[in-house]
Amino acid sequence: MEAENGMSGRILVVEDDVDTADYISKGLREAGYTVEHVADGRDGLYLASSSAFDAVVMDRMLPGMDGLSVVKALRAGGVETPILILSALAQLDERVTGLKAGGDDYLTKPFGFSELLARIENLVRRRSGKSVDTVLRCGDLVMDLLSRKVTRMGRALDLLPREFKLLEYFLRNKDRVVTRTMLLEQVWDYRFDPHTSIIDTHISRLRKKLDEGFEQPLLHTLRGVGYRLSEHP
């Protein structure tokens, strides 16, 4: 993880609920981030537009000015800081509205901290330089995006298009925690009930092709959180 690798970032948390704000701020600081917290929408707008942050965590319902208006105002003002919208409104429509307003990601309450952290790191990294490489690597795994070939230790892996798409997402988020809902939303643009365990099925298929017959596993399952592609266990 970036934080563990010594890379830190500044995160602005705009959240009026004291307990939630403390919970988020504490967790982010432990992960190595510098955190600023405000409880009011207008303060959030002022801070986010006057000072440089690596990401903003924005609650949707705020006193002063609601979260979506702040996001719209920031985007209208040319501020491109990645924004993660937090909301208790879980419906499909609300998510679309949030992303349309200019949010980069949308997370519904209640959420686990690992889910939040994974998404923030995803946003911060996305900003710190979108990879334009045509070849993605993880240890001895090599993905050529042009020829659409994947090899491990020089041996070609025969992947279906959907498996290729999934592995590409993992490679782009190498060494980072990826949750089931992130995969659903960002690889397939779906939002299903997590109990359908479809993602687990896809992962086990991919893992079979990726790790079977090799000494060192690359695709790790993190209990209760999600998955991570990494050459380190």
Partner: peptide, 18 residues
């Protein structure tokens, strides 16, 4: 996991209602 299932149920209910 139980919490996830319950949340999913709640969300689905809201989607239906909407």
């Amino acid at each position: 996991a139980e919490i996830d299932r319950t949340l999913a149920t709640l969300t689905a209910m809201l989607d239906i209602a909407r």
